[in-house]
């Protein structure tokens, strides 16, 4: 019973995260949401009795992919100085989806 509640909450969170990765106006926020998505995927693998896949996902999916996206983000964001883009005090901008 409690186990299926865990499954349900985890799956809803995964879908919610995937949706917000794609619709959030700020690219940096999308990347951070994607990193947390990877972390929660590892929990899903554990629940599906696949600890080997969970091991690979924990190493590659959350660690390496997150670092890759974060270091590519700097190059792919507009503006002459990256920190003005990433470090805005107010909420996200509305430059397309």
């Amino acid at each position: 019973m409690i186990v299926s509640a865990f499954d349900l909450v985890l799956c809803l969170t995964l879908v919610w995260l995937a949706w917000h990765v794609l619709v959030s106006p700020d690219l940096f926020r999308a990347v951070v949401l994607f990193i947390s998505f990877g972390l929660l995927m590892a929990l899903a693998w554990v629940r599906l009795l696949a600890p080997d896949v969970a091991l690979a996902e924990a190493a590659i999916g959350s660690g390496l992919t997150g670092a890759l996206f974060l270091s590519a983000l700097r190059r792919l964001t507009p503006g002459r100085r990256g920190e003005r883009r990433v470090d805005r005090k107010e909420g996200g901008d509305d430059e397309g989806l």
């Binding site: 940096f28 990193i35 959350s62 660690g63 390496l64 997150g66 670092a67 974060l70 270091s71 983000l73 700097r74 990256g82 920190e83 990433v86 470090d87």
Partner: peptide
């Protein structure tokens, strides 16, 4: 790892 990449490469 992700935090280090963030501090050194993004921010």
């Amino acid at each position: 790892l992700a935090t280090v990449a963030f501090v050194r490469r993004t921010w």
